[in-house]
Write a protein that binds this DNA or RNA. Structure first.
Lengths: 125, 125
DNA sequence: TTGCTCCTCACGTCACGTGAGGTGGC
DNA sequence: TTGCTCCTCACGTCACGTGAGGTGGC
């Protein structure tokens, strides 16, 4: 499937999907004869995962490491990343902890944001 | 009060507080003889408001407009921004709506993030 | 052949981070 | 006088946005 469809399905911009390819975060599994990026369903799943991670404030490089580690744990070694399953587990555990911590932060930020919205509402009542 | 104290109280970096001065978002009410930025309690309150707004994804320029409008509605005309109360009300109403919409987005992002954290937890179980 | 989608440079932008080198004030 | 805090350039960075000019494929 082509990048336009992928962008629509993931709610990412075409430029963003392209950028993730440029930095090696999610590289399309194939190219057409004319050079068009072709994404498999697995590629799309990875992009969806990345989109879920974005609010957690990880860098693209960190997400790349995480995706690689998860790939190792799920038994698809990804070709060029020679991570041991053990290293992968520690890495994923670290990300899990950071993810949970960030979720807590997000919750308080959300509460504050809601409070703010109501303050603005009161301002124009 | 000096920038270091302000940064600590607002949980913003010193550089960030300085940046907000540079772009005219929150300008300290005074400077010491030696050029040190001096913030009043009102200045700090504005910085706290800005920090609450950040998760809502507004640009610094937008926040500047909002702070000015709120200042007008609260009866402290801010000197250089000649906004009418009417224009201020419409602007604030717009921001209220956008803030509420972004709160909804934040809620779904949070839900997805929590789901993701649990997925990572399951991965290393 | 006409559109629409895609491509690669490559520079711009937004919100700061990060030194470099220098001064203020208890 | 010694620290610690603050100052102003000014360049770097991260995650893309935004044209410019060109091609692929139904």
């Amino acid at each position: 499937v082509q990048i336009g469809q992928v962008a629509e399905r993931t709610e990412l911009s075409v430029r963003t999907v392209r950028h993730y390819d440029e930095v090696g975060l999610v590289v399309p599994s194939a190219r057409s004869a004319g050079g068009f990026r072709l994404y498999t369903e697995d590629d799309v799943a990875q992009l969806l995962l990345v989109r879920r991670m974005k609010p957690l404030g990880f860098t693209l490089e960190e997400m790349r490491l995480l995706l690689d580690a998860v790939a190792v744990l799920e038994g698809r070694p990804d070709g060029d990343t020679p991570t041991t399953p053990d290293a992968a587990r520690t890495l994923v555990t670290g990300f899990r902890d950071r993810a949970r911590a960030r979720c807590d932060e997000l919750r308080t930020e959300l509460a504050r944001a809601e409070e703010l919205a109501e303050r603005l509402a009161a301002q124009v009542r």
